[in-house]
Computed example of a mutant assay.
Amino acid sequence: MAIAVHRPIESASGRQFPGLARSLFGNVRLDFASGDEAKSRMASAMLGACRLTRLEADRHVVFGEHVTARPADPDAIKLIVQMEGGASLAQSGLHAPVSRNGLVIYDPSRPYMLTNSTPVRQLLLQLPRHALPTAAVERLAQPFLAKAEQDGMCRILLSLMDSTMHEIDHLDEARRASVGQTMIELVRTMIGAERPQAKSVASPLDVLLQRIKEFIVLHLERPDLSVTMIARRMGCSVRYVYRAFEIERLSPSDYIWDLRLQKAAAQLRDAGGYAGEISEIAFALGFSSSAHFSRAFRHRYGASPSQWRKARMS
């Protein structure tokens, strides 16, 4: 299966703005009751495991009650740099003002409300949750705030994010990934996260692989389960999902189908033997047809589903 090596910049303006926001940031709700939606625009691109977005918008409120409600919603830590205008983030009992050249890092899986009380220009960085140590994520039970004039790391990150958006069209995938990794390291340093020791802590790819496997098990019966869906939920690129599976010597898709076949074999072993049961098992596990299921099952176990069931019942 071919792997895309370049993802274009995604952009939207006006009425398309809220739709792209939900696609990129999860199940958020935008309210422009006090502002002009037509003045809004954004551009976004992947930087390896990260996503960097630039947006300009009139006054509006972002409600994030159920950001990861759907399987395809990205589960990522979010960072906002306020380039112009004023905003306030309410989360976990804290009301955090975000002024010009200010930065806020927060966990959007926790309910929040972001009030942009003036027209704003912002840079947003989404980092996959697995890129930060568990202790760092736990510290984000409440938002982390910083100001460029008071924090040198904040100034460096702000400058890097801004310059990257201006040069994004001239960066190939490898350079984008390198810049994204630099941003991750800056964020880790800002929130006081110590680098994990290789001997005692799993690598980021190991952690990512474990989270992907848990996600696949939970959604194994969904016919639309795909590498793209997994990447969006993990908050990383499709290429990083493939990299995480290199140790398995299977592609993510092959892993999904093999797991489905294993589950089918277990269900056939306990099957009651009534007419249509094999087809029910196949469709319930996401196979498109009985023929598709039979071919895959025979290739995996060297017997047809009916032969497998009869052998186990005898």
Rank of each mutant, 00 (worst) to 15 (best):
A21P: 00
A21G: 08
A21D: 04
R22F: 03
L24S: 03
L24E: 01
G26K: 09
G26E: 06
V28M: 06
R29L: 09
S34D: 14
S34G: 02
D36V: 06
D36S: 13
D36Y: 09
D36W: 04
E37F: 02
E37Q: 15
S40K: 05
M42Y: 02
A43D: 05
S44A: 15
S44I: 04
L47C: 06
G48D: 09
G48R: 08
R54A: 10
E56D: 08
A57K: 09
D58Q: 05
R59F: 00
H60N: 11
V61P: 02
V61I: 15
V61F: 06
V62F: 01
V62M: 10
G64P: 06
G64K: 11
G64I: 09
G64R: 11
G64H: 10
E65F: 10
A69I: 00
R70S: 10
R70H: 14
P71Q: 04
D73A: 12
D73N: 14
D73W: 04
D73F: 05
P74W: 02
D75K: 08
A76H: 03
I77E: 01
I77V: 15
I77G: 05
I80N: 09
V81P: 01
Q82F: 03
Q82P: 02
Q82A: 13
G85W: 05
G85N: 03
G86T: 08
G86K: 12
G86C: 09
A87Q: 12
S88A: 15
L89I: 09
L89F: 05
L89V: 08
A90E: 14
G93F: 04
G93K: 10
L94D: 13
L94G: 00
L94P: 00
L94W: 08
H95R: 15
A96V: 15
V98T: 01
S99E: 14
N101F: 12
G102S: 08
G102F: 01
G102M: 03
V104H: 05
V104C: 10
I105W: 03
I105S: 04
Y106A: 07
Y106H: 14
D107W: 03
D107I: 06
P111L: 06
L114M: 11
L114G: 01
T115E: 15
N116G: 00
S117W: 09
T118S: 14
P119M: 08
